[in-house]
Amino acid sequence: MLVLTAIAVVRMRSLFAIAMLSGVFSLLSALLFVTMDAVDVAFTEAAVGAGISTVLVLGTLALTSRFEKPTKRSPMVPLFVVLVTGAALIYGTLDMPNFGSPDAPVQTHVGPDYLERSVEEIDIPNVVTSILASYRGYDTLGETAVVFTAGIGVLLLISGLRLRRRRDDEDEDESEEV
């Protein structure tokens, strides 16, 4: 499913359909996250990937254009880049522990410490929250700062020439270049 959606995005020219498909992709991956026990992540991915970012892409399309023009460039160079990267990825996976294996380093080294110590030290049921906000709370501060950066970035870029819109239906023909 995921692969099909991704390939459909490669082939499609209608940007509107692409926006929708990328939402679909996010929802599907959210489902996948649930099956892999990452409920928090699934929740976020659904809200962000299928919600906010789809809305943003649609908003951008409204301000730009709906269709992709066919490109004349040859796909050989990108294909080469992708294949080399893919080969490196596959090479890396060869020595990876099996999926779901309980004795992988990830499961034996630091991970269980969180589960054990969180009970005593933080004492809240959701371990993801306790790591997110306390053990690795500093990353989350960084994350908030990233959101803040994006916010002021967008304001710097496109809020300067704000047009006061009185009524939605009055300014449909106001599409002159700014």
């Binding site: 943003l56 301000l63 730009t64 269980p112 997110l132």
Partner: peptide
């Protein structure tokens, strides 16, 4: 293991931040 979940939560947020900036640039 909850740790990867936490990392990815952060990464998703970074991703949406990048996306919104990129789209603003496109506009």
């Amino acid at each position: 293991n909850p740790l990867p979940h936490v990392l990815i939560l952060t990464a998703i947020v970074v991703g949406i931040a990048t996306t919104s900036l990129g789209l603003a640039l496109i506009v």
